Simulated scan of single mutants.
Amino acid sequence: MSYNPYHYPVIHQMPPYPANMVNYPIPRTYPAVDPKIFEGSVKSFHQLMAQASMLLNRLGNVAFSRKLMSAAQQGKQAEVDKMIKSIGLRVPVATKFNPTDVHFILTTPPTPYNPINCCTLTVGLKWSQ
């Protein structure tokens, strides 16, 4: 028999457990429920929603929106960021835009008690066809 590089031998594998073995569920233990972190996240998210409301109120100003859209259309990310910063929001906001829509990503800032931000709120708005 000659060597064939395209021939792969068939390997017969045994099942991972004997066929007569019954599959019983494995009991699992979970840590006690502690809602403190979740409660903090809910509180922080309420603050994000208040900040998003402030953002939307400012975006409702036609002159501000026209200037923001114009800067975005010209690809001036720094100017868009500066305008959003001028609103005076107390949370970090990242702005991403394309020809049809804009997204504002609001995140909770880290605190001494929680060095990792817990929550993110994305506001997506359509501004063109």
Rank of each mutant, 00 (worst) to 15 (best):
L106I: 03
G124N: 11
P15T: 13
P18Y: 01
P25L: 13
D101V: 00
I116V: 10
A50H: 08
I37T: 06
S65V: 00
L89S: 02
N4V: 10
M21I: 12
I11Q: 14
L56I: 06
A94Y: 07
T29Y: 08
M49I: 02
E39G: 03
N57M: 03
H46L: 05
T95A: 09
A19H: 05
P35F: 06
P110M: 02
F45S: 04
I87P: 05
M21P: 00
P112G: 01
Q129W: 01
N98A: 10
P92R: 08
H103M: 06
K96P: 00
P5C: 13
S86C: 04
N114S: 07
L89W: 04
A52Y: 06
F45T: 12
V22R: 14
Q74L: 12
D101Y: 07
Y17I: 09
N20S: 14
D81G: 04
E39Y: 08
P92S: 10
Q74G: 14
G60K: 03
F38S: 09
G60Y: 01
M1P: 10
H12K: 15
E79S: 08
N98Q: 08
D101F: 05
Q51D: 07
F104M: 08
K85R: 11
F97M: 05
P31H: 11
G60H: 08
K96C: 00
N117Q: 08
Q51E: 14
Y24Q: 09
S41E: 11
H12E: 15
I87K: 01
V10H: 15
M83Q: 15
D101G: 06
C118A: 04
N61W: 03
P112R: 07
D81V: 07
F104A: 04
A71W: 06
T100R: 02
H103G: 00
N57D: 12
I105F: 04
I105K: 13
A78N: 11
K126N: 09
I116T: 11
V93A: 03
V42T: 03
G124H: 12
P16H: 03
P18N: 07
